[in-house]
Design a protein around this nucleic acid. Structure first.
Lengths: 266, 266
DNA sequence: ACCTGAACACCGTTCAAGT
DNA sequence: ACCTGAACACCGTTCAAGT
């Protein structure tokens, strides 16, 4: 029995072209299902092991349909990367609202970045992957736009903290530096620390005694002291700041880490 | 006319099993030819575009023979990565021998790393790629051994500088730090700065005013000041150090950069 | 109109056949 | 013994056929 035998062309056209109210909602839902699935997969296996064929086996729709939502595998990865950056942006905003001195908020930002890297290692790594391979080239224009927008949302709170500390005369680097340069110095240090320490440490004999949370806090304090960011490391009780970050600002994230068996070394 | 018709089995065996003196030399030569070729290719195109088929088209031997020298594509990439690390280790040794204070030598190390990243961007990126994808897993045991050995050779001069500055009482971080932690703080900052700034900057609106050589020197000075590494940024004529690095220690590398149209902003 | 999965072009790796 | 390239299994992407 054939479909075409039941309907004539005009009624078919009517059936198919009838605008369905649920369509847009379904579209978004499907995109999320796919990203959820891809995220779970690369968390379980690895980015390298991700395959469209393997992905489609776990999805309620077919291979062809994937390409109605994402124009390439790289588009999926950038979509996932952007999702991670949204999460990170929310953490940065909370850090910016920490009730305390600008330097405490600056520490909070780095603390947030480290928590993010520990909570979502695969999403953190995805930014790295996006930088090394030419993911951004193959991805869709819309995803690339979103990516740039999110980069701005991440830089925002950092620049704003430095602006405030300059206004309050609480920072005076040994050489003239723009807000952008100050923010960039922080970003490089944090990025480098997380990237180098997040990798499978067991392989690397030389880094065996390093714990990311301790090194991160140390490195940030060193850099901030270099900025002459007041109050200096030894002129303030930073353990209180960190315990408030742990018990109040990021308590949900800390609980999440604990439930997965990770205990912070600080 | 068949080969087998001319020789009987024993004379064939004799012909083939005769130890050829050139064999080992040819083996090494072929490996180098392949690595040269792969290097040129990813410099011209990209790591992602590298294909065994494309590679073999430019080589004087066939696809199967490649697998007599390298057990996988990842093995080739790790081989190339190791080659880069050898070059870098040589630069670090020269930096360590810079005639000056430990802090000057520390600056020289970072300067060397930046020069390396600028001179061999694809080799620098290969370390990043090796870290993100599981290249190290698929590569041969011998290449992995070599990789760890080279990591040690890179850390060596850095640790040695810090040991000397501790002996001379020229360093006193605001918190207790091991030699390993000191070296790691430097590595993270340098790695992060190079990695973030080496990427195609035109894409990224927020980083448009940043020049890697200037930011690198700034960031290192900030971190060293955080270490209380004597003499501090504003207590010494560092421009003299940098001009000696440019005109003496790394003059060959600077010339090389110039010949390619790169002019350092410092 | 939308979904499907066979089909396609291309990839890394192997191995029987040639020398 | 060593080299070769056809053959294989698998990949991302497309598109004719089905509904």
């Amino acid at each position: 029995m054939f479909f075409w035998a039941i309907f004539d062309e005009s009624s078919l056209k009517e059936l198919f072209m009838t605008p369905r109210i649920l369509d847009i909602k379904t579209q978004v839902e499907r995109e999320n299902t796919l990203l959820d699935c891809a995220h779970a997969f690369i968390q379980r296996e690895s980015i390298a092991a991700l395959t469209i064929d393997k992905l489609v086996k776990e999805l309620p729709f077919s291979k062809g349909t994937i390409y109605n939502h994402f124009n390439s595998k790289e588009d999926i990865l950038l979509g996932l990367c952007n999702r991670g950056m949204s999460i990170l942006a929310e953490l940065f905003n909370r850090a910016r609202q920490f009730d305390g001195l600008p330097r405490e908020q600056g520490l909070a930002i780095h603390f947030a970045y480290m928590l993010y890297a520990k909570l979502h290692p695969t999403l953190f790594m995805l930014v790295l992957t996006a930088k090394t391979s030419n993911i951004t080239d193959k991805a869709s224009a819309s995803k690339q736009e979103e990516h740039l927008l999110l980069e701005g949302k991440l830089i925002g709170p950092i620049v704003s903290i430095f602006q405030e500390s300059l206004d309050r005369n609480e920072i005076s680097p040994p050489m003239p530096m723009t807000l952008e340069q100050l923010a960039f110095a922080c970003w490089s240090l944090s990025f480098g620390t997380n990237a180098l320490l997040l990798q499978n440490i067991e392989h690397c004999g030389t880094r065996s005694n390093l714990v990311v949370e301790r090194e991160l806090i140390n490195n940030v304090n060193l850099l901030f002291d270099g900025f002459q960011f007041q109050p200096l490391t030894n002129d303030f009780d930073w353990t209180n700041t960190i315990s408030r970050l742990k018990s109040i600002t990021f308590c949900k994230e800390i609980d999440n880490l604990k439930s997965r068996g990770h205990i912070l070394a600080i």
